[in-house]
Amino acid sequence: MQFNKPLEVGILHQRYKRFLADIEFAAQPQSIETVHCPNTGAMTGCAEPGYKVWCSVSDNPKRKYAKTWELAQNFASDWIVINTQRANQVAGEALQQGLITELAEFNEWLAEQRYGEQNSRIDWLGESNTGAKCYVEVKSVTLVEQQCGYFPDTVSARAIKHVQELEHMREQGHRAVMLYVCMHSGADHVKPAAHIDPKYANACINAAQKGVEFYALSTDINEQGIRATGVLPVMLSHE
């Protein structure tokens, strides 16, 4: 995916109240502006004061905050995607391009489709020429420790629910996929974060044993856009 307009660059002062961040933009030095932070996670390692950041700008006059925090660069020069909505876009492009060869039979992909007994929404629903279906749940990975990308970055009952819903789809005979999009340039593999949410990690192991598939995508990130570049290993274990 490409950003529609050039991003504005600045320095992060603080992220607070989950959805807000104060940034000093290069175009207006010494002046602090509040922007929208589209990320509900803990953002561990993603929001340290002094990080270089990039924001998109909306033309919508009804918005309270015109700018949206999109990217950050940490002190090790790793790129991080802050806007979690970008993960679905990147995943959709990768699926449509057949980047994950194990899913290449599915040549039509539909976003945000309702499914399951709880009338949930699946991020991507794939259909093949034979009528087979593949349900793909996308997760944005931004927590990286020693080159390992972890999900989630905080305890998440919602994330466990998504794993269980994929299990149900698999039980009905469909392909079911958990797809981690690594939105951090410093990772070379992905794991469920057992040290943060052991219940989620166990749910993933149980789901894999029942046929749910786990994949992860590496990404190239810069101020022009974000694109998936390949498949990373996903390691499921009780450790």
Rank of each mutant, 00 (worst) to 15 (best):
L71S: 01
K191R: 15
R15M: 06
V212R: 02
M43L: 10
G186K: 05
C37I: 02
P61Y: 11
A216Q: 06
T154R: 08
A42G: 08
A176E: 07
N129D: 13
P29G: 08
L12M: 15
Q96Y: 04
K210I: 04
N4M: 08
H238M: 06
H184V: 07
Q30D: 12
I32C: 08
C46E: 11
A207W: 02
I100W: 00
Q146T: 09
S156N: 13
L95G: 01
K5N: 03
G45Y: 06
E93R: 08
E24V: 15
G211R: 13
L125M: 15
C182T: 13
S156Y: 03
L236M: 07
A228D: 01
L7G: 00
H162D: 09
E70S: 05
W54R: 04
T84V: 07
K161T: 08
N39K: 03
T154G: 05
T34I: 15
Y135I: 11
P38H: 09
A21L: 12
L12D: 09
Q28S: 14
Q164N: 11
A47Y: 05
G50S: 10
E93M: 06
E102L: 03
H189Y: 04
E213G: 06
M43A: 13
I32W: 12
A27V: 14
F214W: 05
S140N: 15
E112Y: 08
I82A: 02
Y115W: 11
A207C: 05
Q14M: 10
G225I: 00
L217M: 01
K17G: 04
V163T: 10
V90Q: 01
G45E: 15
G186W: 11
V138C: 00
D78Q: 13
W54F: 11
S77C: 12
V35L: 12
Q172G: 04
F25N: 10
F151G: 00
A216T: 07
K210Y: 06
N60S: 12
G45L: 09
